[in-house]
Design a protein around this nucleic acid. Structure first.
Lengths: 337, 337
DNA sequence: AATTTTGCAACAATCGATTGCATAACACGG
DNA sequence: CCGTGTTATGCAATCGATTGTTGCAAAATT
């Protein structure tokens, strides 16, 4: 122990108890190799000096980290802030699920400049596994790492020909039911707000296209493929509304965040929702039924998603080669459509 | 290296390079004690085998963790979810600020059952410092730990007689300007929604009381001291509205989340806002200008707050005994008042 | 040519725990 | 009283890095 008499490691405590460090280690782990009397004495001593063994040293020795890395790759949207409501909602659910399993959550916002960002985390030895919230435009990097590192799961699209473990909703289906809903509402001209660089969004767009084609409305879709974040969506949409010749009567937003900005922009342009334009979002974030008008949207069950992510991850940590999970999206009709 | 020829540690790499582990360590750290030629060769080799030194081992040796613990103590509100918008917003800002300083963020939701929860994190050796988002009802525990552990900062109230380092707005002032604003709007009967068990909230309530007393309206305040979370606030407020004889004409909510629930409950009871009742929230979370009607509120600048928290924390890690920071709250008038 | 200086790299201790193996202490039956 | 068997503890290697000290050879100095 140091000059102040603080007990800093098991060796100090061992000296105090008159035993060897190994005995202390075993005693604190409640090992039956140590006599009950000795164990009690040592544990009591530890409590008195409120000593707790160093977790990092322990982890180094037993080769585990006790933490899961949660990464938010912001590849295609460098301006995107971590406090984006979607990420935050997901993160909250993950934190709960991981805490329940006795693991810590190591959070990193990542702006993948070099293709090494994921390796760096995986090989750092600080985490037992990694959860990606979104794939961004980093599919190739993710695939490459996933091929050699089992405990890696991602929220996002389950892409054909790709092997990494993912959990996400059926985006094509989601896009399709959104479009179909607008068709049913009588819309004939459509706009899609969102950047198809992200694979989930590309799939949602495809779903829309399929539904429109089926209804013989194949060429009635315009696309605003801007990088849409909470901050940038509103001006982008505003400008688009200014510039466009004919405002469509059905708008499909790639996320609720974008939809909310659209609602505000439309209101500012004096466009009535749902009178003149019908709007559908995607995600069903908590705020979706707080907007004006409340937002119709395609619901993804994020709590269930987080549960699956964590469950799959721990099975992979245990060595199992799990498959992916695709959740069923569900239309939630509110006032905006 | 193992049977597959993977390079797992500097010793493997040293063997490959025909040098000693120490030399590899220095080479990877770009130390000038190693000849440039040797350094280049080793770094090249490391790249080829994409080897990265184990961070945990490094941290153990140099006695630092490279991570900051961010804890959300949920003492008085066991039902409160980590995905509460306030926490999430704060967390987002913290993640950004910490990432900029090259530190990871170790997130823990804590339900303080035993008084040892904070010690456990602090003494675990996994973090270089701790940021608490909120003090909950754990002031005594926090004070005790803070007295021996310097790198600890908390978002919350700066309490008289308490010594731990805190960053927060002047809650009394905030409560006061909220109440004064309602008085100016002509309100004469008031209600406060929020549980004064949390010190910030107690201070906000005091501020209200002071303003009312000064205006000679000292006994016109009723209090709904329920544990108010996003989920529980709405039913609690609804019930309160059912039971109460006379609905007040000025409502001060202890947070925007509570205010939002109040708005919804009032609407459902057919009460016009701001026609019959004026409502003021607290925080100015991003959603505050998305509610119907948009929410008047007392703004706390959370981005600045997060910046201060991180700044103070790193100064404390460096050994400086910093003071606390009190931010000026600011009234934001929107439609609800 | 002899001596000092300089530059590079190896050696070994260290961070703080865990754990297989060796051993000491003790009890007990024969 | 000794051999055998438990039981409880100590010893020392180990996890994977970092770093002060030391040793050696080549370069610089006289």
């Amino acid at each position: 122990m140091d000059s102040q008499g603080r007990v800093r490691n098991i060796t100090d405590l061992a000296r105090l108890a008159g035993v060897s460090p190994g005995t202390v280690s075993r005693a604190l782990a409640d090992s039956h190799l140590i006599a009950k009397k000795t164990r009690d004495k040592i544990q009591q001593l530890a409590r008195e000096h409120d000593f707790r063994p160093n977790v990092m040293a322990r982890n180094l020795r037993i080769k585990r980290a006790g933490a899961i890395g949660v990464l938010i790759p912001l590849g295609h949207e460098t301006g995107q802030h971590i406090s984006d409501p979607f990420f935050m909602t997901m993160l909250g659910h993950l934190a709960d699920a991981l805490t329940e399993r006795g693991h810590d959550l190591l959070l990193s916002r990542v702006i993948p400049k070099d293709p090494d960002w994921l390796n760096r985390v995986v090989d750092s030895g600080r985490v037992d596994g990694v959860i990606l919230i979104g794939q961004s435009d980093q599919i190739d990097v993710i695939e490459k790492v996933a091929s050699r590192y089992l405990p890696l799961v991602a929220w996002g699209a389950n892409l054909p020909g790709k092997n990494h473990c993912s959990v996400g909703s059926d985006n094509r289906k989601g896009g399709q039911i959104a479009a179909q809903h607008l068709i049913d509402r009588g819309c004939r001209n459509f706009a899609f707000f969102g950047d198809p660089v992200a694979p989930e969004i590309a799939e949602r767009l495809e779903g829309c296209r399929a539904a429109l084609a089926l209804a013989g409305l194949g060429d009635s879709l315009s696309i605003l493929p801007a990088h849409l974040t909470a901050e940038t969506a509103h001006p982008a949409i505003s400008k688009w509304l200014d510039d466009t010749q004919s405002i469509p009567n059905g708008i499909i937003a790639a996320s609720d965040v974008i939809a909310m900005s659209a609602l505000r922009a439309l209101a500012e342009h004096g466009v009535k929702v749902p009178g003149q334009v019908h709007v559908v979002g995607y995600d069903d974030l908590p705020f979706a039924n707080q907007t004006v008008p409340t937002l119709s949207t395609v619901r993804q069950d994020l709590a269930a998603g987080a549960g699956h992510l964590v469950d799959l991850l721990f099975r992979r940590i245990a060595g199992e080669e799990t498959g992916s999970v695709v959740l069923k999206p569900e239309l939630v009709v509110r006032q905006s459509s």
